[in-house]
Computed example of a mutant assay.
Amino acid sequence: MTAAEDRLREDVEALCRIVRSSAGEGERRAAAWVAGQLRDAGLRPVVQPYRSPRGYALAHALHDAAGLAAIGRGGLLGAALTLAVLRSYERETSGRDQWVRRVLPSGEGVNVVVRIPGTGAVRRTLVLVAHLDAAPTGWVWRPAFANAGAGLARRTRRMSPVMGALTGAFLAGAAGSAVERAAPRAGRALRTGALATIGVGLAGLVSVARGATVPGASDNATGVAVLLGLARALAAAPPVDVDVVLVLPGGEEAGMGGMRAFADGPVLAAALAAGPVTVVGVDTLGGGTPIVAAAEGAMRTHRFDPEAVALVQAGARAAGEDPPGRWRIGAWTDPILTQHRGIPSTTLLSVGDRGHYTEYHLPTDTPDRVDWECVERCARIVAGVVVAASG
């Protein structure tokens, strides 16, 4: 094992000793520790505070409650209201328009951002992103639920949307409301099933709201540690023909609040003014097999830019690694916010043998459960992406 690989494990273990709840004291402690590591490497990180709800449960629960009321109302008006709520819900989960969050209680989180200028004829900026925070657990993340359909996902490289059943319930509720006058029995059956499914979803949100924050070794101490290792290497040997910006945002698990603050901030604006920008997320690397997100979505599919996906695969080849397969993943990652703004983006992740994230949002997401060989492969791929971006 090399000194860099030893340091990778030490960094993950150090982060796991901090309870990194989104937009809270633990996230701020983790940010301070990361900023200190970057300063020790001779870099000058910027600490960017932001405000955001500390979880997604309340915003989601409000949409569930509105959906229950609309389906309970029934009729054509109820159907229209149900579809309107569903549209708002999807835009909330995908980050397109999180208007509900503007009126919810918020906590204070911190991003850490550092720019490493390139030498030579700089032609583009590469933004690498790894979120600092860790998720709360809940019964919805038990393997019996979370791993359903994982074998099929492995074969098709398509994860089911984590909120697919809920999306179906809203659509069924709207359909039942619309047809209940012409077909009362069918309408009632559809509405009853929808109400039951949404009710179960609400119970799941309660479990998440009350759940303890997990250690978050794979998700996402591994991503942070990989970027710290890259930062130390680039501080000693700056990138050629490309500027590199490392972003370690908070709040991803709560709905990407930290990444939104970065996307609205001056560092990204300056990079866009200077030339082309590509954003690559580094998330949940301890699963066993590296993958690259070609699309994602908790409720519906949002595609990443093929240019960014190809850059990650080119980075793997530059590092002597097999190019990661292109997957449709089932939830959200921070780079979807920049993709929504038309900036080529994607995320490098990993999956286990069954085609699912290992120990996902569980108390067992600890350093001893991490596939370190996979993390090291991902670290080489990320370093290769820097090389490929300079070409």
Rank of each mutant, 00 (worst) to 15 (best):
R380H: 03
E359C: 14
E296M: 00
A146K: 14
D11A: 06
L76N: 01
R300K: 02
I381M: 00
D371H: 11
A134Q: 03
E13R: 15
V292R: 11
T278I: 06
L132G: 06
R369F: 15
P53W: 09
E321P: 12
W99P: 02
P276I: 06
L152R: 15
T93R: 10
G74Q: 02
V127Q: 13
G391M: 03
G229Q: 10
S22W: 09
V240G: 05
I18P: 00
R96C: 01
A35M: 03
A148F: 12
I291D: 03
G352D: 10
L227P: 01
D219K: 03
E296D: 01
D365R: 08
G281Q: 05
V19C: 13
Y357G: 08
A196Y: 01
T289D: 07
H60C: 11
R185C: 00
G275H: 13
V100Y: 03
R44H: 11
V140D: 09
A308G: 07
L190Q: 08
R157G: 07
S88L: 12
A59L: 13
P249A: 04
S177F: 01
I198S: 01
L58E: 15
E27A: 00
E27L: 06
R188D: 13
A153L: 08
S22C: 12
V224I: 00
T93H: 09
R185H: 02
S22A: 12
D243N: 05
T156C: 05
D305L: 07
T2K: 08
G204C: 05
V47M: 12
A59G: 15
V34R: 03
A261Y: 07
L195C: 02
P276A: 03
T197R: 15
H63S: 05
H63E: 13
W141Q: 08
R96Y: 12
E27T: 02
P49I: 10
P367V: 02
G288W: 04
R303V: 07
D322P: 12
V114L: 09
H60V: 13
A69V: 15
V114M: 11
P266R: 04
C16P: 00
I18V: 10
A189N: 02
A178I: 02
A318W: 15
R87C: 11
A269W: 10
E376T: 14
L86G: 01
G216C: 08
V244H: 14
V208A: 09
A4Y: 12
H60I: 11
R377T: 13
A183V: 11
G287A: 06
V244D: 05
L202W: 07
S218W: 07
G384M: 08
M159Y: 09
S177Q: 07
G67P: 01
P117W: 10
V312A: 05
G286S: 06
G211P: 06
A388E: 11
L246P: 00
L104T: 05
T333Q: 14
Y360S: 04
V375R: 04
T346E: 03
V351L: 15
A235R: 08
W332F: 12
H361L: 14
A31P: 06
S390G: 11
G352H: 03
Q313E: 13
G151C: 09
G138F: 04
P143Q: 00
G288N: 04
A148G: 06
A196H: 02
L285H: 11
V19E: 15
G67R: 06
L83I: 06
P136H: 15
G265L: 10
R87N: 12
Q37V: 07
V34T: 12
V386T: 08
P105T: 07
A31L: 07
E180F: 00
M1I: 05
M159F: 07
T347V: 13
